[in-house]
Design a protein around this nucleic acid. Sequence first.
DNA 1: TTACTAATAAACATGA
DNA 2: TTCATGTTTATTAGTA
Length: 651
Amino acid sequence: MMVESASETIRTTPSNQNGVSSLSSQSDGGGGREGGSNGDTNGEISPVDLLHLQQQQALQAARQFLLQQASGLNSPGNNEVKQNPVQVPVSMAMMSPQMITPQQMQQILSPPQLQALLQQQQALMLQQVKTTRSSFCFLFFPRQLGSKQLAFQQQLIQMQQLQQQHILNLQRQGLVPLQPTAAMQSLQQAMCPSDLQQLWKEVSGVPSAEDALKQAEGLDLSTNSSNTTSAFPKAASAHIPLHSLPNGQSHTPKRDSHEELSSSHPLYGHGECKWPGCEALCEDMGQFIKHLNNEHALDDRSTAQCRVQMQVVQQLEIQLAKESERLQAMMTHLHMRPSEPKPFNQPLNLASSGSLLKRDSEAYPEGLPHPPTSAATPITPLRQGPSVISSSSLHTHSHSHTHPVGPIRRRNSDKYCTPIASELAQNCEFYKNADVRPPFTYASLIRHAILESPDRQLTLNEIYNWFTRKFAYFRRNTATWKNAVRHNLSLHKCFVRVENVKGAVWTVDEVEYQKRRPPKMTGSPTLVKNMISGLGFGSLNASYQAALAESSLSLLNSPPLVTPPSAASLNMLHVGHDDVSSTVEQVNSNGSCSPTLSPQQYSHQVHVKEEPTEVEEDSRPVSLLAGVTHSLPLPSDERDLEEDLPTEELE
DNA sequence: TTACTAATAAACATGA
DNA sequence: TTCATGTTTATTAGTA
């Protein structure tokens, strides 16, 4: 990983010295600039003035980063950066990432990591600002800020308050247990776990970071660690208290009951020290306190770890705010009403998150695409879109050994996917614009394209056009996926070529298509895990959620499992659910499609194919039910419930 | 380990 | 000949 290379050395440029400053700069050589621009003419800089200046620079840097991010600085294609031989230990970089220019970060880090670090830098700037206001941390000086700076601070703080409010709303919705995991997901999307682990290793392995200590001098570690530090997401059970405020305030409206029982210290739980990267076993609180004082005393290592944790938290909070804002804008753009209160939840005052939970189509104007609507959306603020993101986009560039750049071979089974129709209907805008591979097989997509057409038939070229029209992903590598489309059309018996008056068109034989569906999944943990780690969370409508809330509330409130309990629960609802049953009906519900016609209705020449891996006998409920739904269309909610609720999963 | 499925690549045929 | 379309085979990878 690039972080590993960065773990050795991180290059810096001379521009650093005029770039973003850090609080440590007062003790390093780069601080020579401070006197010049400060207007101090007496040549003697008081600590107050020094800090004031640093604060101004921090604000400036924050603005700069915001602008840079807005201008797409961190886009992958914008990575040309200058090499510079000047290098600093990584420990230094970890202590004060502000010292590194964005260009250098681009050079060192992959785009997701870069983005995460940029946001962390913003967060640090913000934190520095806020700490001056609250006297929380390590700055003890009177504030002498200009009006612009104050306004900027207020904006930042408002942003944070918004996201905190959002978090509270989510907590009211019973999503509290999800938050740590959601935070982890967000973090993991920004920086993969291995990177974070590496980060921690680097920080923990700081040999002698005098600079780090200087940077963090005055840092009230105890205060910080108890308020902004939590278990690092090393283990799945780790918690990141999103509700912890960087200024030391903590909402903590709801804590893990188990944790509450087992300990009275936020760094102690389940019999082990939850200091990031520690996990030392402590039998009791006394032993833990002893361990804490011995192993995590105020030293450079602990300080560094604390800083990293602060950045982690800040990054998550910033990201949450950004995503919430984006969602709000999206919904505003789509003229969506703020969601109505869910029957079993408190209303949200933040329209964005509430709407996401309300999956029922009634929440959205008909014909309008729903926002990205996996159930994970409200709890994974960093996710860039529907459920596919977490799996496909993150793994897209990591699988192929033979095609490092080109088309990625990936298994993209729709076995565990959401219904394609609802997913596409709800996220069509996303797929149109985001270069993200849809989490459906080619066969599913082709079928959907055909069924979506007015005549249930498409020429090959029309199928091509549908792909490119609906998915940004298919606007590249055309040779690859077009070949795949042709291959699928020819290979699968469910696709029937019909000689029409205007040439050959392709239709779908629903019976054959359903025959080829794989068996339903059982409720094995492995499968559930695969669903979660693999593909999306699927669509949940209101009744669905109500059922979920009633049936698995205990799951939602249970301590974190290896996988997010709610995510698991939500996915359980889609165990074995593919696009078979819902596509046609959902498409029909949109008014764009009429009931599926059998290919036999095309009184034209039909080429019969042999399905290579056909399961002739199919006694699966889904198939039978899907067959029934052709003649007896059910309301989608009922059907979903009927098909998607394996009773063994919702015990 | 094996079987299955899907994705990908490629060769080949056919017709406009 | 070129290109689009269609078929087939082989390989690879993920998963049960």
